[in-house]
Design a protein around this nucleic acid. Structure first.
Lengths: 154, 154
DNA sequence: AGCAGATAGCTGACACGTCAGGTAAAAGTC
DNA sequence: GACTTTTACCTGACGTGTCAGCTATCTGCT
């Protein structure tokens, strides 16, 4: 780790942390949704016929436990419903309620504006491109490391 | 927000989240330290004479409440001590205990290797450069927005 | 059919971050 | 010197994420 690498590594943390905080605050102020709630809703909304928790968790990169906790909260707020699956007694099917749809619709516009204000507005096309490429490389690297279950020496 | 911007924005979240998770796991396995505990220790260590909580919070970009909670946990574990400040009755002075120093020393090596494995090893020099430049632009943008306390339309 | 093991999902305990609201000392005001 | 305001920090409540471990169902083997 060169000191440049280290600086970038730390910057990655602090910058993302701050962005999350600011955009999360905006989202809450505009729609009473946390960023994680929004993530779940946004994904479920794509499949009105219902999504299996496992599939949803995998799609958004969470483990099933995290999703389950979040679902409990979303269900308590009446934004999402868990229904029994006729074909698999273990599984559940997740559906966004009408209220959930409405809340999402109310949230999406301001949320995109907020993301634009805090994130997109900061970057030139070249900078965006560079950032995206770095992230892609990291994503690919993570997938590689995660799939080889072996413990590698660094 | 173009769809490319949106993808990058989402990727930024998920990638950083995964990196934090993995490196955090490594750090815990190697030194029984959470990444946030490590951040605090690493900063306090630089000033053996003691640091004011306010200064520390600002340096690492936290609010004072978050730091205070973390200090309670660190103090309970015996890694950090709060001492009264002779000149200012409100303030406290933070010092890393001998145990804290030892834990940090034990943690730093594996931690750097872990960061290298998960982060630095993934990036070509050009990719690292691009990522860093994007982050710098974002950091500058955040500072600008935060300092102008006005509420801007996006 | 009966049973072992895999699979889907849930739960409880605990660490953590945020927010609103506290306490106490310091600094400014008259 | 008493009064207000500001500053520095702490606390409690609550939403959240992780981990270990649970239950119920399903699948494949015999």
């Amino acid at each position: 780790m060169s000191s440049f690498e280290l600086d970038t590594w730390e910057s990655l943390h602090t910058v993302v942390e701050k962005l999350k905080r600011e955009v999360g605050r905006d989202l809450w102020a505009n729609a009473e949704l946390s960023d994680t709630e929004f993530t779940v809703l946004a994904h479920l909304r794509l499949n009105p016929e219902g999504v299996r928790p496992g599939a949803c968790a995998q799609a958004i990169g969470w483990d099933s436990s995290r999703l389950s906790h979040q679902l409990r909260r979303l269900e308590k707020r009446g934004l999402v419903q868990r229904q029994a699956d006729a074909h698999d007694g273990r599984a559940a099917v997740l559906v966004v309620t009408d209220v959930g749809q409405e809340v999402y619709r109310k949230a999406i516009g301001p949320h995109l504006r907020s993301a634009r204000k805090w994130f997109a507005a900061a970057l030139s096309p070249a900078q965006l491109e560079g950032l995206a490429e770095g992230l892609n490389a990291l994503q690919a690297h993570i997938d590689t490391l995660s799939n080889t279950t072996s413990e590698e020496k660094s």
